[in-house]
Amino acid sequence: MRGRRIVLWRHGQTSWNLERRFQGSTDIPLTDEGRGQARRAARLLAALRPDAIIASDLVRARATAAELASLTGHEVLHEDALRETYAGQWQGLTHDEIVERYGEQYAAWKRGEPVRRGGGELETEVADRAAPVVERNADKLPDGGTLVVVSHGGTIRTTIGRLLGLEPHAWESLGGLSNCSWSVLGESLRGWRLLEHNAGSLPEPVLGDDD
């Protein structure tokens, strides 16, 4: 077994995050606080000695990834397939505005039904484009190697769901990621397994009967 590891790291804070405004694929930069979050998190993640870094090409992910790249010396591979879900008419609206204007659509999405939010992408379509990019780059890792993927909350959740083999209606159960927090997948004999979720500290080994 190769024992590889994938760290899926969400970008730092943006002004639209603070306003609870749906970003989707809109290209919104980090706030000063978001850049600080990225610098702090990068110092931790650098201790994992990642072998490669890939990132969404949206500016908030690019800036987050650049903080880790500056510490590790790795060149970041930017992939548009790692962008956040395109959500059409929802993009730019606040949470309250979405519930007011698209209440039934929002409720169906929260129930785990396939919904084109605002006429945009299905979550399965996001996984279709993002998960293969992550898998392809993970396949290049050496034994015991670590890949850091810098992306967006929705894209990370759907990618984790796909890599774990979960049914799409169950992906919402993974919950969201805080700004600049990450989730860790580890390779096992039966495929990928979730080791850490929405973490802000370094992964600890599992000691006990479930190892």
Results as ranks from 00 to 15, higher is better:
residue 70 S to V: 07
residue 71 L to P: 06
residue 71 L to Y: 03
residue 72 T to R: 02
residue 72 T to D: 10
residue 73 G to E: 07
residue 75 E to R: 15
residue 75 E to A: 15
residue 76 V to W: 00
residue 76 V to I: 08
residue 77 L to C: 06
residue 78 H to R: 01
residue 78 H to G: 06
residue 81 A to Y: 03
residue 82 L to F: 09
residue 83 R to F: 04
residue 83 R to Q: 14
residue 83 R to V: 13
residue 84 E to C: 04
residue 85 T to D: 02
residue 86 Y to Q: 02
residue 86 Y to L: 05
residue 87 A to Q: 13
residue 87 A to G: 04
residue 88 G to R: 09
residue 88 G to N: 01
residue 89 Q to V: 10
residue 90 W to Y: 09
residue 90 W to F: 13
residue 90 W to T: 00
residue 91 Q to E: 15
residue 92 G to M: 01
residue 92 G to H: 08
residue 93 L to S: 06
residue 94 T to R: 02
residue 94 T to C: 00
residue 94 T to H: 06
residue 96 D to L: 03
residue 96 D to P: 03
residue 97 E to D: 12
residue 98 I to E: 11
residue 98 I to R: 07
residue 98 I to K: 02
residue 99 V to S: 00
residue 100 E to P: 08
residue 104 E to T: 14
residue 107 A to D: 12
residue 111 R to A: 10
residue 111 R to F: 06
residue 112 G to R: 13
residue 113 E to Y: 01
residue 114 P to Y: 05
residue 114 P to R: 12
residue 117 R to F: 06
residue 119 G to K: 00
residue 121 E to K: 10
residue 121 E to Y: 11
residue 121 E to C: 02
residue 121 E to Q: 07
residue 122 L to D: 13
residue 122 L to G: 04
residue 124 T to S: 14
residue 124 T to H: 04
residue 124 T to R: 04
residue 125 E to G: 05
residue 126 V to T: 11
residue 131 A to K: 03
residue 131 A to G: 05
residue 133 V to L: 00
residue 134 V to Y: 14
residue 134 V to I: 15
residue 135 E to S: 01
residue 137 N to K: 13
residue 138 A to R: 01
residue 138 A to K: 06
residue 139 D to G: 13
residue 139 D to C: 02
residue 139 D to A: 15
residue 140 K to M: 10
residue 140 K to L: 13
residue 141 L to H: 03
residue 141 L to G: 08
residue 142 P to G: 12
residue 143 D to F: 00
residue 143 D to S: 10
residue 146 T to V: 09
residue 147 L to M: 04
residue 147 L to Q: 05
residue 148 V to Q: 13
residue 148 V to C: 13
residue 149 V to R: 05
residue 150 V to N: 02
residue 150 V to K: 10
residue 151 S to L: 07
